[in-house]
């Protein structure tokens, strides 16, 4: 438990030790804020503004998709490159603890990132009377989707020493898994990350969707642990 907390703290604080964390938050806020404003203020007969984030959630998820590989690329690649992996391996910390600690550190940052958009629902509540259910579930959905992106990124970061390669492979994987619904037929639709988000945006909680994300995250974290283990024994 103590090593886990140490890892979470170190990796979370790491986002703010360089411009990375600030830039990510600023960028995310800027782009989504822009869309939020447009959504509320561009009134036309076809588009009447409504007090909900429904139109925004997919957009925010896509922005997260593009930001998250930058948040995850260094997680293991940098430790391997700079030699600090040897420190992590010398301590009596299991690979599962290592992966979980680093994952939770990144999740904490994701939480802060999403929290930075809290003014959107607050504004909605001031100018209108939004349904709270869909709002809360939208954020839950976004968090789960983001958590899935990070699981993929942490896996690709464990593959080698190059941060750039980690980010590129993460992009390719994420885009594939995201758009599987459009090209993969019925199975693609079931496997795709995008199709499980819909319920949340509508305020419908479906356990199957939540389990999908949990399972998704588990698989990629499991693969990461296996990758680290294989390095210990090769």
């Amino acid at each position: 438990m103590i090593p886990l907390l140490a890892l979470i703290k170190k990796d979370f604080k790491g986002y703010f030790a360089s411009p990375l964390g600030y830039v990510a938050i600023a960028l995310f806020l800027f782009i989504t804020g822009f869309a939020f404003t447009a959504n509320l203020t561009q009134v036309s007969p076809q588009h009447l503004p409504e007090a909900s984030l429904r139109g925004m959630v997919y957009f925010m998820a896509v922005i997260l998709l593009f930001i998250s590989p930058f948040l995850t690329m260094r997680i293991f690649a940098e430790e391997k490159k700079s030699g600090t992996m040897e420190l992590l391996k010398t301590a009596p910390v299991s690979d599962a603890q290592l992966v979980l600690g680093k994952y939770l550190g990144a999740l904490l940052f994701l939480f802060v990132l999403l929290l930075s958009t809290i003014e959107f629902p607050i504004i909605l509540m001031q100018v209108g009377d939004p349904d709270l259910g869909p709002l809360v579930l939208s954020y839950l959905g976004l968090f789960l989707v983001g958590a899935s992106f990070i699981a993929v990124g942490i896996f690709t970061s464990s593959l080698g020493r190059s941060q750039m390669m980690a980010a590129i492979i993460a992009f390719i994987l994420l885009l594939t898994l995201w758009f599987l619904a459009d090209v993969g037929g019925e199975i693609g639709e079931k496997l795709s990350m995008i199709s499980h988000l819909q319920g949340y945006t509508l305020g419908v909680f479906d356990l199957a969707d939540t389990l999908y994300y949990f399972f998704f995250i588990f698989i990629f974290l499991f693969l990461t642990v296996r990758k680290l283990e294989s390095e210990r024994w090769q």
Binding site: A6, K10, A17, S82, G83, T84, E86, A91, P92
Partner: peptide
Amino acid sequence: PETPPIYPEMTVEDYLDFVGGLWG
């Protein structure tokens, strides 16, 4: 190790606190 396993962006104290944490 041959190259000291340090994190340049951490302070000396925070770093040692982190390593202490790793050791439980």
